[in-house]
Structure formats: structure tokens, C-alpha cells
């Protein structure tokens, strides 16, 4: 799990320039999605990988002489198909892996990779935090210790969940590793900021 939650971050690195960190703002945690959240896409990839092999195997059993006629086109078609499949897998992985949450002493920054060229960065000030909850449902999530982190805010939030409406915002991110620990960290940082303001 340690590779998913990075705590030793040099905020002065050029890679963090796009976050526009305030002077003296330190990145405390860099959190990525848990790898188990990618299993569904990987399963789809494996099924799509096996599918043409099965088709060819059955086809050869039923009409072996037809296949030898179109051998070259079959090789071309297969190579094109697998090139597409690898590109699809790598794109999906980038989409998944480049969704990152940065927790600094002052803010939570949620970087959401949307496809090939779109990228959304939403942020939430720590003092706006009202409540933080971690939700782990299902055997897989409980076993691997990952789930959805929801931060209720005083302002507007970002959430894919249309059912959650009202004046308060909901800042929710799915497939977060060790969400209870992250929730506790956010609440402690919020408490610290509120105490400093008072």
C-alpha cells in the first residue's frame, strides 16, 4: 500500500508546478487509486485478448481450407486488433493512474484525468471541510482495504453522484487506498487549521 500513498514529496519539483502551490505550502500526501480498481478493465482486456483466438480455433475446426486462402489478411487483421487493444489498455491505465489526490497542509487537490487530452483539477480548502467519510462495500474492497472517500464541504464540491444535492458540496473520490486513514488525516488537518484561526 505504501506505493499508493506517498508521504515524502519534494513540492519544489517541476512536476508540481501546475498545481500552483502557495509559498511554503507542503504536499503531505500524494494518493493514487488502488490497483484493484483497475481489475474490471483488465478483465475486459483479457476477454477481448482471448476472443479472436477462440474464433480462429473454432473457425479452423469448421472450415480449415477457407482459412489458408485469407491467411495474410487474417494476420493483418489480428495485428491491427491487438495494436488497438494495447492502445486501449494503455489509455485506460493512464486515465486510471493519472487521477491523483494531493493533500497539502492547506488544501485537497483532486486531479482528474479525463481521456486523452482533458484534465480537471479541483481543489478544496481545509477550513471548508465539514465532514469526512470513508465507505468500503463488498468483499474485494474490504479485503484490499480501499473504497470511496467523501468530503462534505461548506462550499461547492465535485461528485459524480447526482443523488447528492443541496447546499453542501460533496467531494468524493472512488477506489482510494486506506480511506479511513486518509479521512482521519484530513479531519486532523482541518482541526489544526481551525485551531490556528481561533
Amino acid at each position: 500500500m505504501s506505493h499508493l500513498i506517498n508521504e515524502e514529496v519534494n513540492a519544489n519539483d517541476q512536476a508540481f508546478l501546475y498545481l500552483n502551490l502557495h509559498p511554503d505550502e507542503q504536499i503531505l500526501f500524494v494518493v493514487r487509486h488502488h490497483w484493484a480498481g483497475f481489475l474490471a478493465t483488465l478483465g475486459l482486456f483479457i476477454a477481448m485478448f482471448i476472443f479472436p483466438v477462440l474464433i480462429i480455433f473454432v473457425g479452423k475446426l469448421l472450415a480449415a481450407n477457407q482459412f489458408s486462402q485469407y491467411h495474410s489478411f487474417l494476420v493483418m487483421g489480428l495485428s491491427g486488433y491487438y495494436l488497438f487493444l494495447l492502445t486501449f489498455l494503455f489509455g485506460s491505465w493512464l486515465d486510471f493512474y493519472y487521477d491523483v489526490i494531493f493533500i497539502t497542509g492547506e488544501r485537497i487537490l483532486n486531479v482528474n484525468q479525463k481521456g486523452l487530452l482533458a484534465r480537471e483539477v479541483s481543489e478544496l480548502n481545509m477550513h471548508q471541510v465539514q465532514d469526512v467519510s470513508a465507505n468500503m462495500d463488498g468483499i474485494l474492497r474490504s479485503y484490499f482495504n480501499f473504497g470511496t472517500l467523501t468530503v462534505e464541504t461548506a462550499g461547492e464540491g465535485t461528485s459524480d453522484d447526482k443523488a447528492r444535492h443541496g447546499l453542501q458540496g460533496y467531494f468524493s473520490v472512488s477506489d482510494i487506498p486506506d480511506p479511513n486513514r486518509i479521512a482521519r488525516v484530513i479531519l486532523e488537518l482541518h482541526r489544526k487549521i481551525v485551531n490556528e484561526e481561533e
Partner: peptide, 27 residues
């Protein structure tokens, strides 16, 4: 088309990768 898409992925990795992440080995 596949080449163009992969080139875009290539630039995306080098623009948005974070220090020490798994982007380069996977690429």
C-alpha cells in the same frame, strides 16, 4: 492513427508524470 494516439500518450506521460511513479516502466 495508432501511431498518432501513442505519440499523444507519450507526450502526456512526459508532461504529467510525477517523480518516481510507474509511468516510464509501463510506457
Amino acid at each position: 492513427l495508432i501511431l498518432i494516439i501513442n505519440l499523444l500518450y507519450f507526450f502526456q506521460v512526459f508532461k504529467y508524470r510525477l517523480p518516481g511513479d510507474a509511468s516510464i516502466p509501463v510506457l
